[in-house]
């Protein structure tokens, strides 16, 4: 069912990771990703892996959730691995037939690529699993606020993101409902050729778009009724404040990045 999609799902909790300031988590995620791309050796990957594992353990989010989230990526992962195996040259040739050669370098590279993508996505999941969408957009807005000086509408952008995240489950539910209603009128999504199946989407998409526009209209009216007028002079009930915990987390982030850079310098 459509309901089972775990896109940007948030698992409420009180772990250390949950309690971190969303800004800290966002910055740390960026640091983590940079470090991940600077890692070149088994040792540095090992360090990254330990960091990730410890973070996941601390978050107390069940491992199952991560595995479920990774499922839709299986195809991309597989594809990346295949590409890397077949199109990397160098190293000892292991298998060679027709125009295809598989080398040891290719295998190693494919393996690292796979690990890199897996760790990248898992790290991102950790952020969305432990941070509520509202906290996330608040954090993003706060981090990007310097860009207001160059006239970037930071508040508006974060509000848009917040609303978009909020409406994902609603729209999924709506799609489910419309699909059932049209099935009851005899639409057949499961059989027929490609053209036929694409045609069958029209009775779903038209009502879905119309309802999305209607919702947008209603939401805009509701916001106006509450005197929303954009970010200027708007105060917050929950102010973001760094705690000692966040300083420690930043410290760990710096050490991690520095460590990986140093390892890279020594070619490890």
């Amino acid at each position: 069912m459509l309901k089972d999609i775990t896109l940007g799902q948030f698992f409420p909790g009180k772990s250390i990771i949950h309690r971190l300031d969303p800004r800290t988590k966002l910055v740390l995620l960026v640091v983590y990703i940079v470090a991940l791309f600077m890692a070149v050796s088994w040792i540095s990957y090992g360090v990254m892996f330990v960091f990730l594992t410890v973070s996941i353990t601390l978050s107390r989010v069940r491992l199952k959730a991560f595995i479920k989230g990774l499922k839709p990526l299986v195809f991309i992962l597989f594809f990346t691995a295949i590409l890397n195996i077949f199109f990397t040259t160098g190293g000892t040739v292991l298998v060679s037939f027709w125009k295809i050669t598989i080398t040891s370098d290719g295998l190693i590279r494919a393996f690292f690529m796979l690990i890199r993508i897996l760790m990248l996505v898992t790290g991102t999941f950790l952020l969305t699993y432990t941070t509520s969408p509202i906290a996330l957009t608040d954090g993003l807005e706060s981090l990007l606020s310097p860009l207001k000086k160059i006239r970037l509408p930071v508040h508006e952008l974060s509000m848009m993101m917040c609303i978009a995240l909020r409406f994902i489950p609603t729209l999924i539910e709506e799609t489910d409902k419309i699909m059932s209603a049209q099935k009851a009128r005899g639409v057949d999504f499961e059989s027929g050729n490609l053209m036929h199946r694409v045609r069958a989407l029209i009775p779903i998409l038209v009502p879905l778009f119309i309802s999305a526009f209607r919702r947008a209209d209603e939401l805009a009216t509701a916001m106006e009724c509450r005197c929303y007028h954009g970010g200027d002079g708007r105060t917050k009930m929950k102010l973001l404040r760094y705690k000692f915990l966040d300083i420690k987390a930043y410290g760990i982030g710096v050490i991690l990045l520095a460590g990986v850079i140093v390892l890279r310098r020594f070619g490890l």
Binding site: K177, S180, A181, A184, R185, P203, P207, I210
Partner: peptide
């Protein structure tokens, strides 16, 4: 067996 859902007007297209 015909089924009319709640708020069926949202299925018009």
């Amino acid at each position: 067996v015909g089924l009319v859902f709640q708020y069926p007007e949202y299925q018009l297209f």
